[in-house]
Design a protein around this nucleic acid. Structure first.
Lengths: 150, 150
DNA sequence: GCTTGACTTAAAGTTGACTTTAAGTTTTAT
DNA sequence: ATAAAACTTAAAGTCAACTTTAAGTCAAGC
């Protein structure tokens, strides 16, 4: 089964122009063309597109994704290199998870801060509070916001 | 204690031009100026800057951060609104965490894929494997990559 | 007092990732 | 056979978030 760029775009919920852009940037070395020059996507191309989608979600820039997709085209001699790139990207995602958790911790503190302020009718209530009044799990985030050194 | 834009920039590990840009965009309604027009940051401004940093990490656009910082300047009458914005942003971070975990699951599958291929010396080894040969925790990611409908 | 480095602004430039436009070709449907 | 819809490319436009530049002012150390 073969698909045009518009059909694939619908499947992936992206604009056809996005796929043409990716192709122009070299992310789709696997797509073939009809005699008249129309892109023909195979069922098996979907996996490559999903890999691109995944790498994009890690924040990898287009140019780096291109390198990976090219390695895929080169066959078994590039397996080790591809494994190294996957592992590198895995590390960045783990770091992002850590970062996002810290961000959430801060927002959780702010949520408590404003809920408490809403109860009291004023943010000034927090001037009266000491560290012990802050829920234990929110204290680290509080300390980070308040710290003055660095 | 008062600080110039360059001193604060160092503390936050950002370029001075970034802070001037934020100021121009209205993110820093709290910074004061000397008689000659030089920005003077107070110790207490650090917390506002850390809140901006936090909101930026959630992916919130500059214009939306501006709204939040302006609400902070307006005092206690905006507590409820600020709480609502924090909660909204908290939701987006939870969604991002979910997304990032799915991305990591895919990378974990790919890691296994290439490690297996490296052992065998060829990616073709995966043509011989069935679903049961794939570690159980990696199967959902595998299924997602392979699925052909949608 | 004067140089040097840091500050100021406005405006232009950069980057990445697309999107839109324009002009043309191909395929599909009647 | 022809009109409409979908495809093609190259080039220009957009957007967010900065960064750089240019021209000038201010402040600190010698």
């Amino acid at each position: 089964m073969l698909y045009t760029v518009g059909e694939i775009a619908k499947k992936l919920h992206v604009a056809p122009s996005t796929l043409r852009y990716y192709d122009k940037e070299g992310l789709l070395p696997f797509v073939e063309r009809s005699d008249s020059g129309i892109r023909l996507f195979k069922d098996s191309d979907m996996e490559g597109l999903r890999v691109i989608e995944c790498l994009k979600k890690t924040g990898m820039p287009i140019k780096d994704i291109k390198v990976f997709m090219e390695l895929c085209q080169l066959g078994d001699s590039t397996i080790d290199e591809r494994l190294a790139l996957i592992d590198k990207q895995r590390k960045t995602v783990l770091e992002q998870q850590k970062q996002l958790q810290e961000t959430l911790d801060t927002l959780n503190y702010k949520h408590w801060y404003y809920e408490t302020a809403a109860q009291a009718g004023t943010c000034a209530v927090h001037d009266l509070l000491t560290a012990e009044d802050i829920p234990e799990d929110l204290r680290p985030a509080y300390q980070k916001l308040k710290k003055t050194e660095d």
